[in-house]
Simulated scan of single mutants.
Amino acid sequence: MVDVVDKATRSRMMSGIRGKNTHPEIFVRKGLHATGFRFRLHAKNIPGRPDIVLPKYRALISVRGCFWHGHDCRYFKVPSTRTEFWLAKIESNRSRDMRDVARQQEDGWRTLVIWECAVRAGRRVDPLLDVIGLTIDWLRSVSAHAEMSENGMVGD
């Protein structure tokens, strides 16, 4: 299928997509802050620059977009144009994510990945009890790593 906009317009549109301070990330930050948690943002001294750093809990939270990180959910679909490029790009993102989480854990951090689909699903139900509640439960646990998606929390 041919793109509906010219190459320059598509390039401008794609360059406008943010890597930090996204809507799902802000949603999680507001929920944590409202419940009394204090944190740092995008720490440059930690591998992968996680979105939320909670030093008191020795915990890192990364909020990932389902498309950009190739999450296996209804929000991810391989584009029908330039398929090879997109598959390589997404695989590169996945590899970097796994490498960053491994380095973070080697440095003694606990890691939580919150997928965009979890935040979207949380908005349909009760977000404070859903996404934020599960995040708080994880912070208070001893779990070293967990991932949250629209299907709930999976961890060790």
Results as ranks from 00 to 15, higher is better:
G36C: 08
R74S: 11
T35N: 15
F67Y: 07
K56H: 13
P47W: 04
R49P: 12
P50S: 10
R74W: 08
Y75L: 13
G70S: 08
K77F: 07
G65Y: 04
R58K: 15
F39Q: 03
P50K: 04
K77M: 11
Y75S: 07
G65E: 00
T35G: 11
H42K: 12
G65M: 03
S62C: 10
L60Y: 00
R64N: 15
Y75Q: 12
G48D: 07
I46W: 01
K56P: 10
F67T: 01
H33N: 12
R74Y: 10
G36K: 11
W68G: 07
D51A: 10
V53M: 08
A34W: 02
C66W: 00
Y57E: 13
R74M: 09
R74I: 05
F76P: 04
L41C: 11
R38H: 15
R40Y: 15
L32D: 00
L41A: 11
G36R: 11
D72R: 14
H71I: 03
Y57G: 08
G36E: 08
A59R: 01
V63F: 02
I52K: 12
R38P: 12
R38S: 14
N45M: 11
F39P: 01
C66F: 00
K77L: 07
L54M: 11
K44T: 15
K77H: 12
G48L: 03
I46R: 02
G70R: 09
N45A: 12
I46G: 04
I52L: 08
Y57V: 08
F39S: 03
D51N: 12
N45Y: 10
F39D: 02
H69E: 06
H69Q: 08
G48I: 12
H42D: 08
F39N: 03
I61K: 10
R40F: 13
A34Q: 15
P47D: 06
A43V: 07
F39E: 00
F76G: 01
R58W: 04
G70V: 00
G65V: 06
N45R: 13
C66E: 01
G70C: 05
K77G: 09
H69T: 08
L41F: 10
V63R: 00
P50E: 04
I46K: 02
R64S: 09
R49N: 15
F39A: 05
K56D: 13
Y57H: 15
L54K: 01
F67Q: 03
N45V: 13
P55S: 11
K56Y: 13
L41H: 11
P50R: 07
R58H: 08
F37P: 09
R49C: 15
L32A: 05
H71F: 02
A43L: 11
I52T: 04
I61L: 09
L60Q: 03
G70W: 06
G48C: 05
K77V: 12
R40D: 14
G70K: 06
I61C: 09
G70E: 04
R58M: 02
R38D: 12
A43C: 14
I46M: 04
R58C: 01
P50M: 05
F76W: 04
Y75F: 14
Y57Q: 14
L41N: 13
R40E: 13
R40M: 13
W68E: 03
T35H: 15
